[in-house]
Structure formats: structure tokens, C-alpha cells
Write a protein that binds this DNA or RNA. Structure first.
Lengths: 343, 343
DNA sequence: TTGAAAGCGCTAACAT
DNA sequence: ATGTTAGCGCTTTCAA
């Protein structure tokens, strides 16, 4: 609908520079086959005129698309909004535009979004958010992305290993272990796990870390109550209610992300169960509000903004023969939601 | 770079359906000039084949671009991430893609982003975030957007009136008044204002509301300490420190957004100043964590997600002769950060 | 090193 | 109601 905006076309630049369309194109794209002198003149004229290529024409003609597609569960979930912030930041520096869409943590819907982005001919796709334990669920996405990559598209994923693409991997297992160790050191033995739905890889990995920590202390995760609910705040609420009802002697709750931890804290506050005096609570992610909660939350810090940047960085490099992997590191942040076991 | 993805073109659909390119185009676009019967057949075939139009070709040929550009201060600021969530939600329902970029609350940078989006030929531009009191600062953006709209582009803004476009306007003044009234009713008389930078319209409007409430009680904002700092969490911290130092007898602090309120609460917590017993605190926006803070925050609720949806709704309607305006409503949410004045 | 010309896949006049 | 055709602005062979 919008008419030619600036209305400035490459041919205008070419004419002013006294060269042909082809030469102008080559000069601006920095391709070779143009003398330095002519190339400079063209670039100069282009800058003076404030010329910006029409991306539709460019892409249609076979040039590469300068937009990156980003799929997140929900942008208004702080974990994802921080990742998105990182992607947008770096994209801005590189002159790229970012298209964001929601997967709603639904593999079907996610697949649809991936297809959509491919149909939109974005040049880069970044998929953020946990993968699914069941490989069949992701098989199709993997296939589609493989085709896309074969066609020259670049893909990077955050927090999933099974997609055959460059990956930024949060240290979920190490983080889980750090949380478990922290609580054990405080003397807790009756620890409940507020976990997201068990199909999520993130949940599986974080649980494995906790299990490892328990094992080192001669304990087993199998003896602890584990409640699987949605991987969001409300899930944390539900799970906590169930734990308080079925395992009233629990002294510590591990929530596998900060969103769930917020739900946990909310229920404990309503029931007037003192944290950490009667119940310790830990989260995972260290979203930016974690330190402002009531009480401030002990959690594992993941560098979400950097993870977004890293993913785009990977995608910006030429494709490698084998998928690259970058792990993020993690750090235990002890705040006021954890204390010694009451008994 | 990415090759034809599915490689499916409109002509393929047309052939399979046994019609011409033009007919297929008309049928899929829902334009008239095609018999119901043929149109259905084409749509059927298209669906079966999983055809998705190449948006670059479509836009280049003069069709309307199906992407909407959204400019926010920062996506990882909850206020904006919720707005973005609303926009993306509705966009998804409409089959549109959303390109997000950051303005960084810098008018120059914002202007650059607007230009960029126009150059990218997006069909719709949504600008979220406060405008600037000084009309000159926005004059250029206004001009650029006017040109864009003349060319058929659609624009909607959130939280600013001076851009000559359809606008979603938060009830900042009414909200400010509600906050002032609430504190006055609790008996507070020494109220300090933690305000964002005074160039922001949002700040000006919210302050005006507070001033009105005070006036109704025979008081004046001029007699209260007002500290202008950055409109973010850190600004709230700085301002609070200054207030505690210079006006130790203050009994209530009005922060003009929740981010600042979080900074206020953080400082009070560190100084062990009891909230609300010694100091009441209110915020503005009701970001989703407001209820989980320590203590939970009394604030003004704005329907951010809906505001995002509303903005896109406005932009989806054909342009009207005069800019449309929708106000959002607001609601005082009383939580645990406010209580009776201690003296 | 440079230019001319053939598309990329679609929409929109213009014919029929 | 349907088909034909001329572009949209660019990249990229292919010639010169």
C-alpha cells in the first residue's frame, strides 16, 4: 500500500553517479568488479541522496533478506523479553530488523511459525525456548529447518540441542546442581520440586542437575515430591498448594524457573508461611525482578540478554559443517528466600 | 540467500486449479471479479499445496505489506513487553508479522528507526512510549510519519498525542489523581514525587493528575519535593536516596511508573525503612510483577496488553480524516505498599 | 571494468 | 468473469 516512500531508486543513484544500474548495484553491495574509484563515487552519491534499497525488490531478485525471525514462547515473559532484547540490540547494530512471533510453547504452533518465517523469506531464524524431550515432536521442525538451511538460511536456537542448528545452551544441569547443593548445605532434606511439564528439555536437564546434587549427598530425587505443572507462574501456585497439602513437612521448594518461583512465593505469602524461616524457595533464570520479590529470590543467573546476542552472533557467521554449541555459564545468586532448614 | 523455500509459486496454484494467474491472485486476495465457485476451488488447491505468497513479490508488485513495525523503548521493560505481547497476539490472528525495534527513549534514534521501517516498506507503524513535551523534538518525526501516511502507510501511537496519528492514550492524568487522592485519604501530607525526566509527556500528565488531587485538598505540588531522574528502576533508587537525605520527614512516595517504584522499594528495604508503616509507596502501570514485590505494590493498572491490541486495531482500520483517539481507562489497585500516614 | 537485459513472483491495468 | 501483459526495483548472468 505505502507508496514509494522516499521514492528513490537505485537507478536514480546510478544516473547521478553516471554509471549503469549493474555497476551501482555492485558498488553498493561491495562486490568486486568495480574500480575503487567508481565504487566510491557511487557510495558517495548514494549517501548524499539518502538512498535505501527496497528490501522487497532486493530479496525478490535473489539478494539476501536482512530480517531475522525470532520465535519465543511469549515476549511478555521476562525470560524471553530479555533474550529478545539482546537479539534486537545486536540486530540494531548490524542494521537488521527482527520479526518476533509467539510459539505459545506449543510445538504445532511453533512449527507453523517456523514455516511462516521461511515463507516470509527471512534470512535468519532464531528459535528460543525449551525443546521437547520426545524427539518425534521436534522431528518435523528439524526437517523443515534443515531444508531452510540447505537453501542458505541460517538458524540458531537457544536452549535446545535437537534441532540440528547452532545452539546457545544454558547450563541447566550445572545450575540445577548448584541449587541442590545450596539447599543441602543449608541442611534441607525434605525438598520438593516444582517442575514444569516433563516434556520440556529444560525441565529434564534442570531436574537432572538437582538429582545429581542429591545423589552426591546420598539422597535420591525419587524420594522427593515432584509436581509437574505449567512452566509459568500459575503452575507454581498450583504445585505449591499440592505440596503443602500432601507433604506438609517440606522445608524447601525448588522451582525450575523464576516464574514458577513467583507463584510459589505468592501462595506461601497468602498462607503466611514464613520464607525462609519455615520454607526456603529457589528459582532459576534470575529474571530482572528476582531481586525485588518478597522476599528477594535465591536463583541461578543466566545471562539472557547475552544469550540473545550470542544466538544472533552464531547465525551471522557462515554455516559450519557441524552445528556449533556455546554454553552460557550460570551463577548461583543467594538472596533472602533461602535459609537454614527449620528442622 | 535462502532459496525459494517451498518453491511454490502462485502460477503453480493457478495451473493446478486450471485458471490464470490473475484469477488465482484475485481469488486468494478475496477481491471480487471471480465466481464463488472458481474462487473456492483456487483456495482449496492453494491450501492443499500449502501455498504461501512470497511477500517480497507481493509487496514489490504494489500489494500491501503484511508486516507491522513496532517501536518501543526497550522490549525487556515489562511495560513495553506487555504492549508488544498484545500487538503480536493480534498480529498473529491476522496473519501479520511484527518487526520490533528499540528507540532507547532517544528521539533521534527513534526517528532513525521510523525512517528505517519506512524504508523497509512496512505497511503499519506503531510507536509506543511517551512523547516529548517539547514539540520541536517531535516535529521531524511528525513530518516523516505524515509523509508515510500520505503514501498509504498506517500509523498508530501509544501514549502520545502529538504525532498526527491514531492514538491509544493511557489515562495518565486520571491515574495520577487517583494516586494522589488515595494517599491523601490515608492522611499523608508530606508526599514526595519520584518523577521521570520532565521532557516526557507521560511524566507531565501523571504529575498533572497528582497536582489536581492535591489542589482539591487545598495543597500544592509546589510544596512537595519532586525529583526528576531517569524513568527506570535505577532512577527510582537515586531519587529515593535524595529524598531521604533532603526530606527525611516524607511519609509517602509517588513513583510515576512501576519500574521507578521498584527502585524506591529497593532503597527503602536496604535502609530498613518499613513500608508502609513508616513510608507508603505507589507506582503506576501495574506491570505483572507488581503484585509479587516486597511489599506488593499499590499502583494504577493500565491494560498494556490491550493497549497493544487496540493500537493495531486502529491501524488496521482505513485512515480517517482526523486522527482517532482511544483512551484506556485506569484502575487504582490497592496492595500492601500503602497505609495510613505515621504522623 | 562496465553495461544490457533477463528475470525474481506477484498485482493491477487492460483486454476479452 | 476471466485472461494477458506490463511493470514493481533489484540482482545477476551474459556480452562487450
Amino acid at each position: 500500500m505505502p507508496k514509494p516512500g522516499p521514492g528513490l531508486r537505485l537507478i536514480d543513484v546510478a544516473q547521478r553517479a553516471g554509471v549503469s544500474l549493474a555497476t551501482a548495484s555492485r558498488a553498493l553491495a561491495g562486490r568486486e568488479g568495480v574500480s575503487e574509484e567508481v565504487a566510491n563515487r557511487v557510495r558517495q552519491v548514494s549517501a548524499e541522496l539518502g538512498y535505501v534499497a527496497n528490501p522487497y525488490a532486493r530479496t525478490l531478485a535473489g539478494g539476501s533478506s536482512s530480517t531475522v525471525g525470532l520465535i519465543v514462547h511469549q515476549v511478555d515473559d521476562p525470560y524471553f523479553s530479555e533474550i529478545a532484547g539482546g537479539v534486537i540490540q545486536l540486530a540494531g547494530e548490524q542494521g537488521l530488523l527482527v520479526q518476533i512471533c509467539h510459539s505459545g510453547r506449543d510445538p504445532e504452533h511453533e512449527l507453523r511459525q517456523i514455516r511462516n518465517l521461511i515463507a516470509q523469506r527471512v534470512g535468519i531464524i532464531i528459535v528460543a525456548g525449551s525443546g521437547y524431550g520426545d524427539p518425534r515432536v521436534e522431528a518435523e521442525a528439524r526437517t523443515v529447518l534443515a531444508g531452510y538451511q540447505r537453501g542458505g538460511g541460517r538458524v540458531a536456537v537457544i536452549g535446545r540441542h535437537a534441532l540440528g542448528a547452532d545452539a546457545v545452551l544454558p547450563d541447566n544441569e550445572a545450575g540445577g546442581r548448584a541449587l541442590g547443593t545450596h539447599l543441602l548445605e543449608l541442611g534441607h532434606r525434605r525438598i520438593a520440586l516444582v517442575a514444569g511439564t516433563p516434556e520440556l528439555n529444560t525441565v529434564i536437564d534442570r531436574m537432572a542437575g538437582v538429582a545429581a546434587a542429591l545423589r552426591s549427598a546420598g539422597l535420591s530425587l525419587d524420594d522427593m515430591p515432584i509436581v509437574h505443572t505449567d512452566f509459568v507462574r500459575e503452575g507454581g501456585r498450583t504445585a505449591t498448594e499440592r505440596i503443602l497439602r500432601d507433604h506438609p513437612d517440606t522445608t524447601a521448594i525448588i522451582a525450575l524457573n523464576d516464574a514458577m518461583a513467583m507463584g510459589v512465593l505468592a501462595v506461601l505469602r497468602e498462607r503466611e508461611i514464613p520464607v525462609p524461616d519455615r520454607m526456603s524457595v529457589v528459582g532459576f533464570d534470575d529474571v530482572s525482578v528476582a531481586g525485588d520479590l518478597s522476599p528477594s529470590l535465591t536463583t541461578i543467573r543466566l545471562p539472557m540478554t547475552d544469550m540473545g546476542r550470542m544466538a544472533l552472533e552464531l547465525a551471522l557467521k557462515p554455516q559450519s559443517t557441524r552445528p556449533r554449541r556455546r554454553s552460557t555459564g550460570q551463577q548461583l545468586i543467594v538472596r533472602n528466600s533461602t535459609g537454614p532448614a527449620p528442622f
